[in-house]
Computed example of a mutant assay.
Amino acid sequence: MAILPFEKHHKDGSVWARGQTIDGVPTGYWEWFRTNGTRLRSGHFKDGEQVGEWTTYDRDGRPYKVTIMTPKRV
């Protein structure tokens, strides 16, 4: 079980998403970006699920909205 950095790019080559995975599953802190480089969204994953505070940013990269994500119940 190794923690690996993950990065995906837009068609123009700019960073679209950045985070880390364990065995291909998102874990820890992640960020998504617009093609101009401003942050779009950020938050944490635990075992592939969004947890805790997730922040959405406006077009200028300023925090716009915070959503509290709770783990799904089985």
Rank of each mutant, 00 (worst) to 15 (best):
L40R: 15
D58R: 03
W16I: 12
D58G: 01
V15K: 01
T21G: 10
T70L: 14
D47R: 11
S14K: 10
T27K: 09
K11S: 14
G48M: 08
Q50V: 10
V15M: 05
E49S: 02
Y64M: 11
T21N: 11
W54Y: 06
G61W: 00
M69I: 12
G28V: 04
G52Y: 01
K8E: 14
D47L: 04
L4W: 08
M1R: 14
T21P: 05
S42K: 10
G48Y: 06
E53F: 10
A17L: 09
V15G: 01
P71R: 15
E53P: 07
I22R: 15
G61R: 02
I3T: 15
K46E: 10
K65Q: 12
W16F: 15
R34V: 05
V15D: 04
D12A: 02
T56Y: 09
G28F: 02
K8N: 15
K11C: 14
W54G: 05
D12I: 04
K8Y: 14
E7M: 12
T27F: 10
S14E: 09
E7A: 15
R59G: 03
Q20F: 09
M69D: 08
W16T: 12
K46T: 06
W32H: 09
D60T: 12
R18W: 04
V15S: 05
T67K: 15
G13A: 06
E49W: 01
G43C: 00
G19R: 07
T35D: 00
W16E: 15
P71V: 13
P63I: 12
Q50Y: 06
G28A: 00
I3L: 13
Q20V: 08
T27L: 07
G28H: 03
R41P: 03
D12M: 02
S14P: 08
G37V: 04
P71C: 06
I22L: 11
R62A: 09
P5L: 08
I68E: 13
T70Q: 07
Y29E: 13
K46G: 03
G37W: 00
P63T: 07
G24Y: 00
I3Y: 15
T35F: 01
P5Y: 15
G52S: 00
S14H: 08
V74M: 10
Q50H: 10
W30M: 03
I22K: 15
T21F: 08
V66P: 04
E31Y: 03
Q20C: 12
I22H: 14
D60H: 06
S42G: 06
G48W: 07
P63N: 06
